[in-house]
């Protein structure tokens, strides 16, 4: 029964993938190989599309594989399977968190966690920038500091950042504008 297989396999991925969509990718690749759901080329295209369309990467990939395997119900079932462990586990945690979030131990723990979360978020930005804005491989190849930056990207970053600080508009506006700029100027 393909629907049950899809649900259970994606439920397992949701249960064991710690660290978000990218952490789920190796699990998903194993699945595809195990069941022969896609070719290697389809898989590569699928990951590229899942990364560059809105939504969590893991969720997009699950919808993709489910749809390719068993049509629209397949897409829905795979995605539900992937999200189900999160919903169950987090609901239990949220219940106790609400009960104990005033507890001194929990409050002290979160006083340490909050600056670390800022570090986590900053590191996510840095990793993104490492791919697009810094060209570390150029520095290693040519030893040229001038080629460390992708100037087109750096320029866009500075402009968007200045606009965010000045106009304080909804983030969606910057994301949509960037998408247009990316298509027009072939980023």
């Amino acid at each position: 029964m393909i629907y049950l297989t899809l649900f259970l396999e994606f439920f397992k991925v949701g249960l064991f993938a710690l660290g978000g969509g990218l952490a789920a990718l190796p699990f998903l690749q194993d699945l595809i190989v195990k069941y022969g759901w896609m070719t290697a080329e389809e898989l590569l295209n699928m990951i590229a599309i899942s990364e560059s369309t809105p939504g969590a990467i893991g969720i997009n990939t699950a919808t993709f594989i489910g749809f390719n395997t068993a049509g629209i119900p397949g897409g829905i079932i795979a995605t539900t399977g992937l999200a189900a462990p999160s919903i169950i586990i987090i609901t239990i945690i949220a219940h106790y968190f609400r009960k104990f979030n005033q507890h001194p131990l929990v409050e002290s723990a979160f006083s340490g966690i909050r600056p670390a979360v800022a570090g986590l978020i900053a590191s996510a930005a840095f990793e993104l920038a490492r791919g697009g804005i810094f060209q570390l491989q150029n520095l290693q190849l040519n030893g040229s500091l001038l080629e460390l930056f992708d100037y087109k990207s750096l320029f866009l970053l500075l402009i968007i950042f200045a606009a965010i600080r000045k106009f304080k508009k909804h983030p969606i506006i910057y994301i949509s504008t960037a998408a247009l700029i990316g298509i027009i100027f072939k980023f």
Binding site: N45, A48, I49, E51, S52, T53, A118, I121, A122, A124, A125, L128, A129, G131, G132, I133, S153, L156, L157, I160, F161, I164, R165, P171, Y174, I175, T177, A178, A179, L180, I181, G182, I183, F185, K186, F187
Partner: peptide
């Protein structure tokens, strides 16, 4: 697929800017 990737490359830069602002 190229179209998505061009859009996404620039969106990533916007996300970097938004995250720096949040931090």
């Amino acid at each position: 697929i190229d179209l998505f990737q061009h859009a996404f490359a620039a969106i990533q830069i916007a996300v970097v800017a938004l995250i720096i602002d949040i931090v």
